[in-house]
């Protein structure tokens, strides 16, 4: 007669390994989803290219996002703003995407852009303060000027905000009520 825990464990080896593989699979799946499958760059109603506007034509960000340095919201340009240029400049009146824009304008409908960066409802965020503090748009939004379709490069999480506040020694930057409302 003899006793061995190992012997007793032996039949459990395969189920345990299978479970392990399953769990690893779960993590891999979740990671892959976060990295590649989550909608970090949603398809927009109009295939708007920041590259063409910002890099090629050297339009500064705040030419269109006019509210960024004065209000909490950066603001997407109004349809009238878009059509303003596209009507007056002769060489950008054609093209399938521009025609889409023209259709919105004619119907007096706003363009239902899909939000790429979204802070939760319980967070108070103001663009104005951050721009006045000297932050470049790219520090949070990435090099949008090189994106044909806007992609979220950061995941907006509390640690991301707090780390920056800590690093930059923001006044009361770690007080919860600075951001939470």
């Amino acid at each position: 007669m003899s006793i061995s825990v190992l012997d007793a464990l032996r039949p459990a080896k395969k189920p345990a390994l299978l479970t392990l593989v399953l769990v690893i699979g779960l993590f891999v799946g979740a990671w892959v989803h976060g990295k590649y499958l989550s909608d970090r760059s949603p398809v927009q109603p109009i295939d708007f290219s920041h590259t063409i506007h910002t890099t090629d034509n050297e339009i500064p960000c705040q030419h269109c996002h006019i509210y960024a340095d004065t209000t909490p919201v950066a603001g997407v340009p109004s349809v009238s703003k878009c059509i303003g240029c596209h009507k007056s400049l002769p060489d950008v009146r054609e093209g399938p995407e521009i025609l889409k824009l023209a259709a919105y304008w004619e119907n007096r409908e706003p363009i239902p852009w899909i939000k790429v960066h979204d802070v939760p409802d319980f967070v108070h965020f103001t663009h104005k303060r951050h721009i006045k503090a000297g932050l470049e748009c790219q520090e949070c939004h990435g090099s949008v000027e090189t994106m044909d379709r806007v992609t979220r490069v950061v995941t907006i999480r509390m640690s991301w905000c707090v780390d920056c506040h800590t690093e930059k020694e923001v006044e009361n930057g770690r007080d919860c009520w600075t951001c939470h409302k």
Partner: peptide, 11 residues
């Protein structure tokens, strides 16, 4: 028996 072998650490 196997389970209790494990439970009892081979006591």
């Amino acid at each position: 028996r196997r389970l209790y072998t494990i439970f009892s650490f081979g006591w």
